[in-house]
């Protein structure tokens, strides 16, 4: 923890090795966050790569008021939303990727947990991202609003409706 704080201070002062070390430490965390958010391995790699590049560009803007991982999640969420907007990725490809992941993980995961993941990925993106940020990463509505560039009230209602949709889906398949 102290070592990370030291590395962060050095990184903000321009030390490239310290910054590289911190980014390495957080790589899997960011990658898994984006992967969970989109369910597409390749897209997760691309967004993670872009997130790291932005972190390098903006490290001097990191003030240390939040955890470094929170700062990275904020960048990753913005990057993911922008990427989706720009690319308008083919939904069919994404579906294929999820099917592949489904086959890969079905026999590794207890069915109950797999249903939860499947239900989450079936949610529309506007619900999925706030639900994930609120109920898995434990962010405040205000923070999620900042990350997703929307209003706090909108985030609250999206989390609520997202959870309702999840409940329905799980009840139907449960």
């Amino acid at each position: 923890m102290i070592m990370e704080a030291n590395d962060l201070t050095r990184a903000r002062n321009g030390d490239e090795e310290s910054l590289a070390r911190i980014l390495k430490e957080h790589y899997s965390f960011v990658m898994k966050y984006v992967w969970k958010m989109c369910g597409d391995e390749q897209l997760a790699y691309d967004v993670t790569q872009d997130t790291l590049m932005k972190a390098v560009q903006k490290i001097d803007q990191y003030r240390g008021t939040s955890k470094f991982s929170t700062w990275l999640i904020r960048i990753a969420t913005h990057t993911y939303i922008d990427t989706r907007r720009k690319q308008k990725r083919n939904e069919r490809l994404e579906q294929q990727e999820r099917e592949r992941l489904k086959q890969q993980t079905t026999h590794q995961l207890p069915e109950e947990w797999f249903d939860v993941q499947e239900a989450l990925w079936n949610l529309e993106e506007k619900y999925r991202i706030p639900v994930l940020l609120k109920h898995y990463y434990g962010f405040e509505y205000r923070e999620i609003a900042d990350m997703t560039k929307s209003r706090t009230g909108t985030v609250k209602s999206r989390v609520h409706y997202g959870m309702e949709k999840l409940r329905k889906e799980l009840n139907e398949h449960g």
């Binding site: 490239e16 090795e17 910054l19 590289a20 070390r21 980014l23 390495k24 790589y27 899997s28 990658m31 898994k32 992967w35 969970k36 790291l52 590049m53 390098v56 993980t105 590794q108 995961l109 207890p110 109950e112 947990w113 797999f114 249903d115 939860v116 993941q117 989450l120 639900v131 994930l132 109920h135 898995y136 999840l166």
Partner: peptide, 26 residues
């Protein structure tokens, strides 16, 4: 949801590149 995603976190296999990759990137 939490437990399902925790399970998923453990299952997702992300290959972490070596330090040299990050140094070059930076």
């Amino acid at each position: 949801l939490k437990q399902g995603l925790q399970q998923m976190d453990q299952q997702l296999d992300t290959e972490e590149p070596p330090l040299l990759y990050f140094e070059t990137l930076v």
